[in-house]
Design a protein around this nucleic acid. Structure first.
Lengths: 241, 241
DNA sequence: CCAAAATAATTGTCAGACATTTAAATGCCT
DNA sequence: AGGCATTTAAATGTCTGACAATTATTTTGG
């Protein structure tokens, strides 16, 4: 298959070997890897090379290292938070580096978010509805900065996806929603546009409360269209400067 | 804010500094970082420490290194493929390490996948429909291994999400679909179950062709229910062994 | 003018050393 | 016997200096 690979460095090869062992379950969460000295013996490389391999794995949160006697490298438990943080980093860079149009990114984000409306309307809890109302209050403060408004917006939408009561879905959606924040931060929200957005947020909460999936869907669709309009306005303003 | 941090290692600090510079746009795609010798001077650390920092960034696909004169570390263009590969690794580990029920994972996967049906029906191309039909043919081969069947299944669904004609959406969905493959690979597909799945795949293609969103949605919902049933059967069989 | 060889810059790897951290073992005093 | 201080051992973190391998550029030779 992969015959003529361009010969990765030794540290990359060793990292791959250990990563595969973890993914395949030969190394379990909490397991301790051999010490750097043992690994360098096993692979017949220097300790420096082993360390570079371990740092690669640490960068992916696959392992952590502890110092001292009986320390070493341990297979990490990949928490939802750590996984989401990595996904957000990757997605953010992807959006930032590829000259993605704001419209395409928005379309994707709201398409994904709409995928949870049915489950959310069915399973929404009072606690999450309360969270969403709190965020709406936050967003209504007149002296709020654009960044704080965006942060609250993200928190609101995260509560929305959490309403679906599916951790895996929350993980994927939170990643896609949060990755949009840098793009959203570029938008200046006028008092008028904030009011419109807050109205739509209220419509979403009410829709969830009375389990009206169609109403939530409509509000999200309107929000998408409105956000894209705002984005285009900003882009136009930038272009003429 | 983060006052009493437990003092990260020097290589982690340097990696963070460079990562921040990339995310903030102070280093642009294609830019060359200073050489390892220069970096070790700038940060007053040894070259080994700098190298560990660079390997961390390379593990996140943020940079690549080239050898030889005028080589060095360059800020990577984060391709969709690289981003998806990372997302798949992270998601796969998350599913594997957190005792996620097959049902929850399936529910999330199909909820996300359904988010592209409307766009896919609108924008599907003949080329992608042809790809999907080819995969259906592959899946119909009677002597196909379970792994090959799953791989073709993934290819089919990837073509489906590509029909939506939104790269960002494809990135997110392909990640969530591919991360399911290890779980799917645990399922033994009987001739009977393969036939059912293939029938539903055909229904999806036809639905896209005639732009019948509801039909595609129904087929996906049926596929989700059927997949969960298959998964439960497998789990039951394992439990009694 | 072109091809071959030398050159210089840079990453990849190695070996050995020392510093630092941490848990366990040891020893001492009550 | 028990508790506290010290020592010890194992491990990661860092540094230094060296050499190998790679590759674009420059020089040289015909």
């Amino acid at each position: 298959m992969k015959s003529a690979e361009p010969e990765k460095s030794l540290s990359a090869q060793i990292a791959d070997a250990i990563r595969t062992a973890i993914v395949d379950g030969r190394l379990l969460v909490g397991d301790r890897l051999p010490s750097e000295a043992e690994l360098s013996d096993q692979h017949s490389v220097s300790r420096a090379t082993v360390r570079e391999a371990l740092k690669r794995l640490a960068a992916q949160s696959l392992i952590r290292t502890e110092r001292g006697a009986f320390g070493g490298a341990f297979v990490n438990h990949l928490s939802y938070d750590a996984a989401r943080a990595q996904q957000v980093t990757t997605s953010t860079l992807l959006l930032g580096m590829n000259a993605i149009s704001f419209q395409v990114a928005c379309e994707a984000r709201y398409a994904l978010e709409r995928s949870c409306t049915a489950l959310a309307a069915e399973r929404r809890t009072d606690a999450l509805l309360a969270t969403m109302r709190t965020e709406i209050d936050t967003q209504s403060a007149p002296d709020l900065s654009d960044e704080a408004f965006c942060a609250s917006d993200v928190a609101f939408h995260r509560a929305l996806v959490d309403c679906a009561g599916n951790e895996v879905l929350s993980y994927h959606l939170a990643g896609s929603v949060e990755a949009m924040q840098p793009l959203m931060n570029m938008i200046t929200f006028t008092a008028r546009s904030r009011a419109e957005i807050i109205d739509l947020h209220r419509a979403i909460v009410i829709g969830l409360e009375i389990r009206d999936v169609a109403a939530v869907d409509r509000a999200l669709a309107t929000l998408e269209a409105y956000t894209i309009t705002l984005g285009q306005t900003v882009l136009k303003a930038r272009a003429t400067r």
